[in-house]
Design a binder for these strands. Structure first.
Lengths: 202, 202, 202, 202
DNA sequence: TATGAATGAGTCTTCATTCAT
DNA sequence: TATGAATGAAGACTCATTCAT
């Protein structure tokens, strides 16, 4: 409220807006969510929101950026605590096996995330951003797999790049299928995980 | 243009509108496409479009309905021509391996399709429709796999349901990843196909 | 259907269209009724309707014109059959007392009629037409009252003009009040009729 | 113009919109007036109008509501200042006798008012609202007449309900007839007033 | 910084009228 | 004459963004 305000204050406000925005986007989709929805949900005035973000698009972008950042950080943290390659692969699969994609909140988030992905498709800049983000996820795994090969923990024949991509392909596949609420998410994911790990072994 | 016009004429016109609509959806996205976009693209007047479809939503729905119908018909046709289960599985995988998901037209279609899928997520009626459509695709495979087991062509241990779901999970996974234009689509899909078929054998 | 068609045929067709139009206008009001409504109701094609009438407005006008003509004719006919002035005045009041203004069909017609009256208010030409029509109604009564005075049947003090106007004022008043379905139409009209006739007597 | 604006400011704005709306309705008729007309006439933007009213229908309703409220308040005020029943009846008649129904502004308002009345006819909710409003007007008179009877000021034989209805019937009648600009409004109304009051006396 | 009223381009949809057959 | 598909100008309403206070 005072004319000069700490960075911390601003950051908190931003966070608050973004949280509300995600909630709205999750509920109604990006296009269908209005700034007024975010105003209602956050209790922050329209003018204030525009003080922190240039446009609705910028909010969208930032919402997804932060969600991703958190996810990466989380994976990195846990990888660093784990020793063997297989335990890391196990861990990252289990992250998805221990999550309920049908649970309302989670489900909404998945939908928004893929909507955003598709949205980026139509804007070169956004697509590049998205691709860079994806590279981070891919490299996380490529590094692990390479280390595993160097350490002779896993099969030398597997192509780390291909297998890294394959992993996210599986995750995207099962996540997307979760839009059908009778999808046997756990069974399918477990089956695919086993096949995946089988290939790595030896 | 004249009244007292054949059903065929009307059907052609509908087709024309839907084709333009799909094209627009592909270009600008499902929600961002306006009726005016379809008017511009098709050269058909707004009024005429509303003579053939009650609402924009109806256009959406019909676009996707028809695309799906064609796809299913195609798969069924080819399945009926093929003898062994493995050859059918091969065939259906190869349908995706012989397609270039990065080719503009195709790419746009993929994006629209998934956008629509996610959109349906927010509307009970649409979701039911979508689920029914998916069931058709799933059952196509379940039937094939069951027949294969009865004919002792494939492993009795695989659960047809799970493997049917797994197949479409793979397809959704690689299709979605194709938004990244450096995604090694063919390599990943081939790898996953091999693993999938390996499991079926014996 | 043949290229050359009798006047009679045309007249019949016109009548048919107008009847449907009145029905539609009565149901939904003039503005809310569409040409398509008339098409549906009459079973006559849009093109055909435009062959007989230049515009929706013209239909409106003609509908009301004819309704009025019938009414006047009816009154004239009956007046000519009646001898005394008072019996004529009685008769014309009773026409309204023996009618149920709340009966759906009739009610709708009343509403349309007053809507049309108000509509004319905004168009000099229409207003003139309407005024001429009203003059006919007024004169019908003025003549009767004057004859009555000449024949010493009714009070010489009453101003025929004023009393003619007063009559239609009463009819418009009770008709309009009939929009309220608890309006004591008969009681009020009877009361006013009695007072009216009382004044004429002596 | 600024945010955090007083209730008074908002009320003024609303009033401004409603005044323009009434003006437009009066000019072009109720159904034919568009929001854009109101925008042009008021100089207030479309968006702003929708900030104050949810829909065009709500504007209609409020326009009439307020007009009615003012009228009722006015009558009540004056009734309270008058002692005898006859003076009250006189007063309310004179309100209409001292008004020029042909004066442009006034005339337009009358037309709009009856248009609205007829419009309500086609909508149960509106009709109920209208009926409740009418009841207020009726009761205003019923109460006066009953008091008059209790105070032995007026004839006990008259039915207060019927006479209350009769009064408004007269007013509606002469008001409606005023659409014809040669209608002898004052003569007719004076005549009817006298007859009415005559009946009350004794 | 915060507020929320104001703006107006943009959206879907309707419908009177035309016109090729 | 009859048909009904085509046209496109409105119309009601929405909403991202601006800006005066």
């Amino acid at each position: 409220m005072p004319p000069i305000v700490s960075e911390e204050y601003k950051e908190k406000k931003k966070e608050q807006i973004l949280k509300s925005a995600l909630s709205c986007f999750a509920d109604k989709g990006f296009q269908s969510s209005t700034i007024d929805d975010i105003v209602s949900h956050s209790g922050i005035s329209k003018g204030a929101i525009y003080n922190y973000f240039k446009s609705k698009d910028e909010i969208y972008l930032e919402v997804l950026n932060r969600a991703t950042a958190k996810n990466i950080e989380n994976i990195r943290d846990n990888f660093s605590k784990l020793r063997s390659t297989l335990s890391k692969i196990n861990f990252i699969f289990d992250g998805y096996l221990n999550t309920n994609p049908f649970e309302h909140e989670r489900f909404r988030y998945i939908v928004v995330f893929y909507e955003f992905t598709l949205h980026c498709t139509r804007n070169e800049k956004l697509l590049e951003l998205l691709t860079r983000r994806r590279d981070t996820f891919i490299n996380l795994l490529v590094d692990v797999l390479k280390e595993g090969q160097e350490a002779k923990e896993i099969n030398n024949e597997v192509d780390p790049e291909i297998f890294a991509h394959q992993f996210w392909t599986i995750i995207d596949g099962v996540s997307l299928q979760a839009v059908y609420n009778d999808f046997p998410y756990y069974d399918v994911l477990r089956e695919m995980k086993e096949a995946y790990i089988e290939k790595l072994k030896l």
